[in-house]
Amino acid sequence: MDAIWIGGAGQTIAVPSVGADWMRLAGLKQRPLQGDRVSLETILVRPPAVLVQSRYRSGQFSRGAAWLSHPIVRNAKSRRVEVDGRGWTCMGPLVIPEIERLRSLIR
């Protein structure tokens, strides 16, 4: 299933990468994007089937966090799944429970 993982300011996961491999295990195919960033225009014009959105430090102000609150992101025509961004920062074994949760949500 076509998916885009988004963090603050439109940061996303590179393809190929460990993160993309983890997402594949969850049944999601991370879309390759230029500069490992996704723009609002992409989300508006070519929304993915699934948006995996990190809520890491979402309560603290940053311009990146403000980007995630943009109306285009909030109203994207994609199925949205929120994830705890901490595990995705290091992409180590701590992300396994997140992958299992994503698999159960996607089914």
Binding site: G8, R57, Q60, F61, S62, R63, G64, A65, H70, P71
Partner: peptide, 23 residues
């Protein structure tokens, strides 16, 4: 020193000057 760790990343894009994704 800002509370959010993403603040430092903001400096790269914003302080260099950018019009991307402005509403």
């Amino acid at each position: 020193l800002a509370p959010s760790p993403f603040a430092f990343y903001d400096s790269f894009e914003w302080l260099m000057g950018s019009f991307v994704d402005r509403g």
